[in-house]
Amino acid sequence: MEIKIQTPLEEETVNRLKAGDYIYISGTIYTARDAAHKRMFEAMGKGENPPLDLKNNIIYYLGPSPAKEGQVIGSAGPTTSSRMDKYTPLLLDNGLKGMIGKGKRSESVIESMKKNKAVYFAAVGGAGALLSKCIQSSEVIAYDDLGTEAIRKLEVENLPVIVVIDKEGNNLYETAVEEFKK
């Protein structure tokens, strides 16, 4: 099913999303990948607040290529999500509702998603030029020194993603592959 959704991700939106749905996301989302996750995780471990409001928000695992003059952002596709698995349950416990990336998630992330009613979306890896067209604005809001790995606030319009793991823990990577396995 094709569904258009708006951020922030309210619980009633999350409830509608099922593994396999094709989604167009509009609104504000945030980028963070390896180094930003590590830094947020360590800060939160010391009792500090993360540099973005996690509640009902979506993190896109993205480190874009640099924008040329006149461009909002460079190439902007997803990176492999599993590298963030170590840090993810803490973010989910603090209100994070959605993640956009590519590839498998660990059991502990999936358990935490079920507990916190969160969704995992896949964007198409290696389609960064195409995906960049859905990004209307980009602003570094934290960890500027990390370069491409800084935390960015993005305004997106109809960013195409697929629900891979829904809040019940249904996993499209497992079910779809079974269908086509010979």
């Binding site: 590839g103 896949a122 592959v177 086509f180 396995k181 010979k182």
Partner: peptide
């Protein structure tokens, strides 16, 4: 024949 397909979505 493994079934992963484009983007691993079958």
């Amino acid at each position: 024949q493994l079934g992963y397909g484009p983007a691993g979505l079958g």
